[in-house]
Design a protein around this nucleic acid. Sequence first.
DNA 1: GAGTTTATTTAGGGATACCTAAAATTTTTT
DNA 2: AAAAAATTTTAGGTATCCCTAAATAAACTC
Lengths: 227, 227
Amino acid sequence: MMDEKITHTVEDYLKTIYDITSTHDRASTNQIAESLGVAPASVTGMLKKLAEIDPPIVDYQRHRGVALTPEGEKMALEVIRHHRLIEMFLQQILGYKWDEVHGEADRLEHVISEEFEERIARALGDPSHDPHGDPIPSKDLQMPPSSFLPLCEMRPGQEAVVLRVRDENPEMLRYLSELGIIPNTDLKIVEYSPLDDNLSLQVSGSEKRIVLGPRITSEIYVKVNPA
Amino acid sequence: MMDEKITHTVEDYLKTIYDITSTHDRASTNQIAESLGVAPASVTGMLKKLAEIDPPIVDYQRHRGVALTPEGEKMALEVIRHHRLIEMFLQQILGYKWDEVHGEADRLEHVISEEFEERIARALGDPSHDPHGDPIPSKDLQMPPSSFLPLCEMRPGQEAVVLRVRDENPEMLRYLSELGIIPNTDLKIVEYSPLDDNLSLQVSGSEKRIVLGPRITSEIYVKVNPA
DNA sequence: GAGTTTATTTAGGGATACCTAAAATTTTTT
DNA sequence: AAAAAATTTTAGGTATCCCTAAATAAACTC
């Protein structure tokens, strides 16, 4: 039995590091600590441990954070696949609402078997994106290709389709959902205010203009429509 | 946030104690240790802790084991409800086989929310028994009444219906499954050997006689048909 | 009912993942 | 380039749940 038991919290570290390194070169101790809600000192300790597992799952360098090794990335993708398949499953098969799935998935992702993963994947028709628009890694852990932009980088005149909304914050999800901003929604940018980085935009169909700050627009990813 | 975080392993202790006290007055340190696969000394430590939680969830007396308090029983029933609903769900909705559900349920039971519980209960039509024939506590934690006997207490001439089979041992479940012994099967007792407590019996339909030892017959519960 | 066997508890430790406070290093500002 | 600020690490500690070995208590047996 080569158990080598990696505890659950390790999976959380990996997920977090994966997430951070999708936009940064390496994940810093502080970023990880903030994201996980633990003290930086605790992160340092854990990172050292992760770097000493055989094979190492992170590349750790004192004072400059970590990056995932190929092994670590594989493990992270496995957890992410679990998470997103579960979100999909909760929504499609158990009837959860868009904004209710994340917390539940966060707990379930650590305990489901490969069997469970395969069965829900099949039941869902091997989807490539979850209810928030996040891409689901394939069974062999390849990320489906996708070309998107954070909404905050759009400018007046451009039109786009919402692809994904980061799912960490249920309140924000609920709010956006009320505004009609969910994956597949069409948006048109009306105005941009460089002072505060606010964007004024129009949701397909509706007449209303919505003004959103960068705190929100950086969490929404869109695909720009060709002009 | 009155979290009062009861850890997962506490739930395992409760489930085990519930199980033992369904046939014994109190659960002894050793019985619990054996069932959980830990050293008796570890159990002593945990039992003391459980007895000192406010409100206490077990009644602990030195050298004479524990019984659940009403609070402890409520918590145990909650976990058992989770477990059995999940088993049902895995079998009915995800297509697991009878003997594959237990391990998965053992991991999932600790992490699902009330929301999840309610949704799968509804999806399953609020069942009162799981795939092994075990009764599922209702939402308000009442056990459905049921009058059954362990198969080992049956004697020649009697007929009965299989109600439940204890689900701890997948190998045994698979074996019984091959013999056709699953919940709802009709049985007729043909012979009883007091020397070794073996029972010879006939499964409905089939011609074959099956001989089972007490190790197995004590794990199968039946309802005797009125003569 | 004294001695043996079995069951349980006490005592002393280990691993994990967290914490705070202080020290060290790196980065930024002036 | 020195001082100030921010980040990261080290050091020392906590709590949980597990372990083994030794001590004690309860249950049998003759």
